[in-house]
Design a protein around this nucleic acid. Structure first.
Lengths: 388, 388
DNA sequence: CTGTAAATGTTGTGAGCGACAACATATTCC
DNA sequence: GGAATATGTTGTCGCTCACAACATTTACAG
């Protein structure tokens, strides 16, 4: 099957304008001259595009405060946050966060609420997201033109059908359709780790890498992949479930029906177990225990087995996907630094592909608790930037 | 980092012509009308493009033999094999095969020789490829405009640097550079499984799938991935090494320095072991033994453990990458059908992502011994179709 | 303070491209 | 044999960006 997308002459402009807007959106304000060199377009072409965008208020032009270097100073082009606003939703097991994000990536306003009991049911979540969005939008005087929603589960890209979100106890939810109907705007639904990977790639630790794997331990273990600068998706637009890679065939059984999934060795429950806590300990207790270990300097020894399983899974992932960079998120970011350093070094040494690539890096997420939210926003922007 | 490739008005034509040529190359002769509907371009545009190609002899137009349906019959557009010829090289451990492949994918001529002793050294292989190509080209009266070379190892896409090809005992060979200098044409070097995946995607079992994983057991176990219709590559253009995914942490040590690589459980040596043969048995002995087992009907039992490890690795791969289809190549294709059927069923049942995607298929390679050669040719064509 | 060089903004011209409509041609079916 | 259908062909049109020439603004040297 060949992808038979052809180019049209009038698509040239739309495409170039979207490229320009994406550059402004991701890297922030730019001078006209910088846009020209960065995009490789002629000065006159840039002028036409920027003029058009300025006319509709999408960007604003200003004389720069101070200019360095000789020559006439170039006009500064600033994206106007209000010009294009998207809704970002991050559904997690314990709470839902929403945000309205403007062009340029700035969070204009946000809200969140906890989930318990009936509140966790799909219908309830959808209703609350719609209501909360309307309030927030009215409050800010903006109206979003698209939405991205992050879900900890297996979601289909095309229509936002959530096949399974085990920790929410969701199965077969037409989330995209139902939320789209409620909000009246296009909605993209994605796996949380997939969105997190996107956010780290555009605005976080992986800003300079086109081949990245994001791995995080929330309750389950999830992963998102950026390959050659774009999100990697499988058949039907479903994204992989890295946590269900089998690493220990003689290990514990997993809810997915298999035995020895990576998640059973490096997920939240496994970490609690390794720390000598109950498997269902609250997140706070786990973090506190990690802090104590770190201060006592006994972290590396106590977490040796955990680190080994983390290393092992990462080695497999690096060998299969060959990224330049692995970004660790959620619970992994609170692991004591010596443990992380040890894992990073081991992964570099023990993965065959890392040696070829020239040493894969392993780093912590740079965006903190907002990663998934920001990723959802970026996903929504993907479909917006060429229509503005 | 944003990919800042912009569109140029004059690139529109080149791009569309390349799309047209690619369609002809991959799917064979087409009517003008079919080209128009398939590409979504206007009839007049198709005429201009086809006329241009016919003038330079790249395609030929013919009135079709018989036309079905009402209306004026559309002219048939046939790609001319001689119009663009590429060299395909498949370096394996025991032999080297070369072929000259014409536009449309037809093999115009081929040659092969065995490797032993000094013949396996990089310099020798390069010299023989160059000489053999010149003879073959002269013989056929054609001259290749690009080359693709398949290597069982880790190769960098950008410049064809082979970092490591363990079974050839190659390390750090500037294959692309040296072969390019010898042949005087651009050379793309790739991993054998990567090329095989490409070939199966374009002309084999995966013709209708955009998300495919090709897995094969030669001496080692290799894998190639097609995601969203294009080859998946990691950092620096290196492709992953699926065979070095760790599946059995308490297993055997692998030459890569790790323990329990998939390759050590489902590679050629492992298969021989499972069959009760010596680990270094020749390929022929293994195949013969498999045949015997199949006839005796005792294959499933004797190969149960092997099948389990194969299943396990495939489950992991399916969970990580979520393909629609897994294509098995090389030694895996001679496994008795009941074994393959069992593995396919198990993978479908036990991989979480398969259940979401709607049941991943597991099939045998459809292109036989020529897969890697054809993949190398297609890889070479990728850079050629937009210059013809 | 003035002149020069460097960098950028602005304007107009030109060539290339595909869409589209109108007309010409060929085939099938009734 | 005529109508309907499908395709080939031609010319016009609007769109895009490259390019060159000119105008403007700044830094720097003397």
């Amino acid at each position: 099957m060949t992808s038979t997308s052809v180019a049209r002459p009038d698509e040239v402009r739309r495409y170039n304008r979207a490229s320009l807007l994406r550059l402004l959106h991701v890297t922030g304000p730019c001078t006209r001259a910088a846009l020209a060199t960065e995009l490789g377009l002629n000065r006159s072409t840039i002028k036409t595009l920027v003029d058009g965008l300025a006319e509709t208020g999408v960007v604003e032009e200003r004389v720069p405060r101070s200019s360095r270097g000789a020559g006439r100073p170039s006009l500064l082009v600033l994206p106007q946050p209000q010009a294009a606003v998207v809704l970002a939703v991050d559904v997690q097991v314990e709470h839902v966060a929403i945000a309205l994000v403007g062009l340029g990536g700035q969070i204009l306003g946000r809200n969140r609420w906890n989930l318990h009991g009936r509140m966790r049911e799909p219908g309830e979540v959808i209703t609350h997201v719609v209501e909360s969005t309307q309030l927030l939008a009215a409050d800010l005087g903006v109206s979003p033109v698209a939405a991205g929603i992050s879900v900890p589960g297996v979601a289909r890209r095309s229509d936002g059908y959530v096949h399974e979100a085990p920790n929410l106890r969701w199965t077969g939810v037409a989330l995209g359709e139902r939320l789209g109907a409620g909000l009246g705007i296009p909605v993209t639904v994605g796996n949380d780790a997939e969105f997190a990977a996107l956010a780290e790639h555009l605005r976080g630790a992986a800003r300079d890498s086109g081949d990245v794997v994001f791995v995080s331990a929330d309750i389950g273990v999830g992963g998102g992949v950026i390959a050659q600068g774009t999100s990697l998706r499988g058949g039907g637009g479903y994204v992989g479930e890295i946590g269900h890679m089998i690493v220990r065939p003689d290990g514990r059984s997993c809810y997915c029906g298999n035995v020895g999934c990576w998640e059973t060795e490096v997920g939240e429950a496994a970490l609690a177990r390794q720390l000598g806590l109950a498997e269902d300990s609250p997140r706070g207790a786990i973090v506190a225990e990690l802090r104590l270990l770190d201060e006592a300097g006994t972290a590396p020894e106590r977490l040796a087995e955990f680190a080994e399983w983390l290393t092992l899974g990462l080695v497999s992932i690096v060998n299969v996907l060959g990224p330049e960079l692995v970004v660790l998120g959620d619970l992994f970011t609170v692991l004591p630094q010596p443990v992380l350093d040890g894992v990073a070094e081991q992964v570099r040494e023990r993965s065959m592909v890392s040696r070829a690539v020239g040493g894969v890096r392993v780093e912590k997420s740079a965006l903190g608790a907002d990663v998934k939210l920001l990723g959802a926003a970026e996903s929504a922007f993907e479909g917006v930037l060429d229509t503005v």
